[in-house]
Design a protein around this nucleic acid. Structure first.
Length: 965
DNA sequence: GTCATCACG
DNA sequence: ACGTACGTGATGACG
């Protein structure tokens, strides 16, 4: 230790637990994996390196080391054969990542610490203790793992790196003692010894969880002392502790971090050195960590520093596989209409946004053409009409389809070659004329139109009178079927599947702000490359996705359901729904009156004024000031008082204020979310509200609705229902017609399980909840009372969701024992249902996904997880996803068929909403009689269930949505 | 931007 | 023994 450095800067040692950090990083990216152009999953590497860089830059350690677990078995395996036995093999992606991570650590000149027979925590613990004994400054053990809490002292702390939005956190002795409710940090191992740790396969003692463990250690201080005083315990607990005493001691031993690892602490070995910049540069380049490279190595002119290696990248030329399809090219060579590449160079980095250089188009051979004369347009059209498949994209002045104006059109039928047609956006008549020039293309039945989120383009063109014909192929939906729980942003798809980084729109029009530019503010020549690239990338994505879909049997679902649904949804959105704004205004005033009234009462009950809408203030008033809750006060995971429905309902029995708050919540919700918000979303042009249906967000295949969400308009309470009266037909000649599937999900479950009892009930047209109640409570149908039916209904829903006794007990307010009995009886009566649930889980365990009737998949990669909570959640998904997803398949099919029929019959009735099991129509009154049976028929027969359980549809009409039910 | 809460199927 | 029913989106509060 050199005296001068010691004086200048206090010592600060960081010891990193490599595997713990790597695993965490890997799973953080599991939702949107990062894959480089060689197909290597780089999530874990990037996550780990980011964490390392962040700690170096922010915490400025003077000393640092990274500990890895030994490859060989450790002493823990010898002590306890099952230790980590159930732990799954390391995911392959992590295995491949490790060598890179080690190289990066070495390039940083940071020592890697590894001792045969020991795990990283032992190594870190030993070094930390020896450092402290030598009077070294501060030591931080960098890990997300809670086992380390046992080691914390005044000098040795845990550093939990920033994660998923949470800031970095230092845990010191005080934190540990509070969290575990203990007196000395070593007692952490007593707690862990008793409660066990499922993920490490430390058994603990049966019957003891977190709470009991804390209580027992508070009283007895240690596992040993607890066992010595076992006679003081009662009943089952005493028996358990006696029987499993040895297992408890062994568990404690397993949880103990050993501080006798044969490793010396020499501060000079851990001193932070300068990194080997050249090695890092090479590694980052190989891994394609451009932003990170710029941050760590570049600093200043990011674009300048790394542009050279990228341009020299030997793989650059092969980035865009050219697929020889489509025919003919408008230009013989690129010389004719090459668009300014120089402009792009100038643009790069001008907003300061992208830190690293991105691959620019000059890396690849492409020909993007600006088509800006009548002659060129005619020529383009001629070529377009010769194709069977063309991708196209619209450029507009904004994202709001109701107000956006068209700025340009791009087309592509050969990968690498695209055409951009600027539209005179400041002259409506000229714009219309230009669109009309291309009408033969839009009308062409023989051309498959390919697009990314093509519903948007359809809607824009619809405002120019275009009704697209011919088949559609949406790359966003293609990816949605391949990876339903990921995002489907085109730039990310291009990176992942084409290993290509498109020009970001940010680079083109700048960041959001008050002077937000639009495409209309740029010269066509600048928009051209961007627009052409979008069409080009989209076409290439289609060529990647199509074979992938075929391989997994999803191509039919895409072509028969998702793609044909696009124009249906576009029409629904375009049509919109009429809202009676003045009725909303009146109701708003009425609600406001109730709210003020209740507010006064609440303040008088509380004896003070406060913000009722702030859960924080509310919790303080209720529990601190008023002392409600009688001891058992629940907190949320962030440590605030929980004040949810459930809690307040319980309090309402003895504290009137709780009921008032619930009422206040309900009314303010209705006011702000619906009554106030909806009239503001009425479109000026046509006085209607246009929601957006998102076809690619849910994991199960359902649609979702935003802006506004019209799938959650109130109906369950009286005051909420009132809002539905403001949803009205377009005029006196129309009515609202609502068609609902009755109990689709239960019917699907009955059918899938083949349960004869339940199928018979549906065949006979019985009320399914009453019928269930009769079976479960062993009473004749006519003796089922309301209470029994209510319980049976809850059970039926519970089944669909993957029931648990606890959940059922909570929901119908009975004991867990009673709930267990009900479930048991249910499964006796409906034994095939039980079989179906087990089969669903077993099948999912094998495949790691679940499927719907039409083959839609939901991946369930955690179904074999050793984390019981996660596994349980995934198992419930294995049961629910096929049911919910099949219901979605069915109604989507119905929508397509009904839409087609309405168009074909040239009817004036329009479909205007979908609410999962319900379709709403703005129906011409004279057509009602004609369409009602047909809609019923098309919905009932949209798909046939394998065992033939019939689908029933109820139809109603009225002067508003409420009446229509 | 995240959290807690609550509207719907 | 864990923790506890499936799927969404909008809001106001707060940092």
């Amino acid at each position: 230790m050199t005296p001068d450095t010691a004086a200048a800067q206090p010592h600060k040692l960081f010891l990193l637990d490599a595997f713990a950090l790597i695993y965490r990083a890997h799973f953080a990216f599991s939702k949107n994996p990062r894959v480089n152009s060689k197909g290597l999953n780089t999530g874990a590497i990037l996550g780990f390196t980011n964490t390392l860089v962040e700690v170096l830059q922010k915490e400025k350690p003077t000393h640092i080391g990274v500990a890895f677990d030994a490859q060989k078995k450790t002493f823990r395996h010898e002590q306890f054969a099952e230790y980590k036995a159930q732990r799954q093999a390391m995911p392959e992606d992590i295995g491949l990542a490790i060598p890179y991570i080690k190289k990066i650590i070495q390039a940083f000149n940071i020592p890697i610490l590894m001792v045969d027979g020991f795990e990283a925590d032992d190594v870190i613990g030993t070094l930390a203790q020896r450092a402290e004994q030598q009077g070294f400054g501060e030591v931080f053990m960098m890990t997300p793992d809670k086992d380390y809490c046992q080691l914390v002292t005044d000098c040795v702390k845990i550093y939990r790196p920033a994660f998923m939005g949470n800031a970095a956190e230092v845990l010191d002795v005080k934190h540990v003692l509070e969290r575990f409710e203990i007196e000395r940090p070593e007692q952490v191992i007593d707690i862990l010894g008793l409660q066990g740790d499922a993920s490490d396969n430390i058994p603990g003692i049966p019957g003891i969880g977190e709470k009991t463990a804390k209580a027992l250690i508070q009283k007895y201080g240690s596992v040993e002392n607890l066992i010595a005083n076992v006679h003081e315990l009662k009943g089952k607990q005493q028996e358990n502790v006696r029987t499993y005493a040895e297992q408890g001691l062994l568990s404690k031993e397993l949880a103990t971090i050993h501080l006798d690892v044969p490793i010396e602490f020499h501060e000079e070995n851990l001193r932070l050195e300068q990194p080997n910049v050249e090695q890092l540069r090479q590694l980052f380049e190989e891994l394609e960590f451009r932003q990170l490279a710029a941050r760590v190595l570049g600093g200043g002119s990011a674009a300048g520093t790394a542009a050279t290696p990228d341009r020299a990248n030997p793989r650059a030329g092969s980035r865009r596989p050219r697929v020889a399809e489509g025919q003919g090219s408008l230009f013989a060579s690129s010389a004719d209409a090459a668009v300014g590449i120089a402009a792009e160079e100038g643009e790069t980095g001008s907003f300061g946004a992208p830190a690293g250089p991105r691959l620019t188009l000059q890396d690849v051979p492409h020909q993007y053409h600006l088509i800006d004369t009548p002659e060129l347009r005619q020529s383009l059209l001629k070529f377009l009409l010769q194709q069977t498949e063309v991708s196209f994209d619209t450029e507009t002045t904004g994202l709001d389809t109701m107000t956006a104006r068209l700025v340009g059109l791009s087309f592509c039928w050969l990968p690498g070659e695209a055409y951009y047609v600027p539209v005179p956006h400041d002259d409506q008549a000229a714009a219309q004329a230009l669109v009309d020039e291309f009408r033969p293309f839009f009308d062409a039945e023989h051309i498959v139109k390919v697009g990314q989120n093509i519903k948007y383009d359809l809607t824009i063109l619809r405002h120019y009178g275009v009704r697209m014909r011919g088949r559609l192929f949406d790359t966003m939906l293609a990816h949605y079927l391949l990876e339903p729980d990921m995002r489907h942003n085109m730039d990310v798809l291009a990176e992942t599947y084409l290993h290509y980084t498109p020009v970001s729109i940010l680079e083109l029009i700048g960041p959001k702000g008050k002077n937000q530019k639009t495409m209309a503010d740029l010269p066509p020549a600048e928009v051209s490359d961007y627009a052409c690239e979008d069409a080009d990338v989209t076409l290439q994505l289609k060529h990647v996705f199509e074979p992938l879909l075929k391989e997994v049997g999803l191509l039919d679902l895409l072509n028969e359901v998702e793609n044909p649904l696009v124009p249906v949804l576009a029409d629904i959105e375009y049509e919109g729904v009429k809202i009676d704004s003045s009725a909303m205004g009146e109701y708003s005033a009425e609600l406001q009156g109730y709210i003020q009234d209740i507010e006064k009462q609440i303040f008088s009950e509380a004896g003070q004024e406060f913000n009722i809408g702030s859960p924080k203030q509310l919790g303080e008033v209720l529990f601190d000031k008023m002392g409600l809750g009688g001891g058992k006060i629940k907190k949320t995971k962030t440590g605030q008082y929980a004040t949810g429905e459930e809690i307040l309902s319980q309090l309402a029995a003895d504290a009137p204020i709780a009921g008032l708050i619930l009422e206040h919540r309900q009314l303010t919700k209705l006011r702000s979310t619906y009554v106030e918000a909806l009239p503001q979303l009425v479109c000026e042009a046509d006085g209607r509200v246009h929601t957006s249906f998102n076809q690619a967000v849910t994991a199960t295949g359902r649609l979702s609705s935003t802006n506004p969400n019209l799938q959650n308009i109130p109906i369950r309470t009286e005051k909420g229902r009132e809002i539905r009266k403001a949803f009205v037909p377009r005029d006196e000649q129309h009515v609202l017609l609502a068609a609902d599937y009755s109990q689709v999900e239960l019917r699907i479950m009955a059918d899938f399980s083949g349960d004869q009892t339940m199928i018979e009930a549906f065949r006979q047209g019985l009320d399914i909840h009453t019928s269930t109640a009769s079976k479960v409570f062993h009473v004749p149908l006519d003796q089922v009372d309301g209470e029994m039916r209510r319980k049976a209904k809850t059970v039926n829903f519970g089944i669909i969701y993957g029931i648990s006794a606890f959940g059922l007990a909570q929901r119908i307010g009975i004991s867990r024992k009673e709930a267990t009995d009900i479930i048991e009886t249910y499964f006796q009566e409906f034994s095939s249902v039980k079989q179906f649930m087990d089969d669903s889980i077993n099948k999912a365990r094998e495949l790691e996904y679940a499927t719907t009737l039409l083959g839609r998949r939901r991946y369930l990669r955690d179904i074999n997880s050793r984390n019981a909570t996660l596994r349980g959640y995934t198992e419930r998904n294995a049961i629910n996803a096929p049911i919910q997803g099949t219901a979605a398949d069915i109604i989507k099919k119905a929508m397509i068929n009904i839409h087609e029929w309405l168009v074909q019959e040239k009817l004036g009735t329009k479909m205007i909403l979908q609410v999962h099991d319900e379709l709403v129509f703005d129906a011409v009154q004279e057509e009602v009689e004609f369409i009602t049976p047909k809609i019923k028929e098309l919905m009932s027969n949209a798909l046939l269930l394998p065992h033939g359980v019939p689908l029933e549809v109820e139809v109603g009409t009225g002067r508003n949505w409420l009446q229509a039910h």
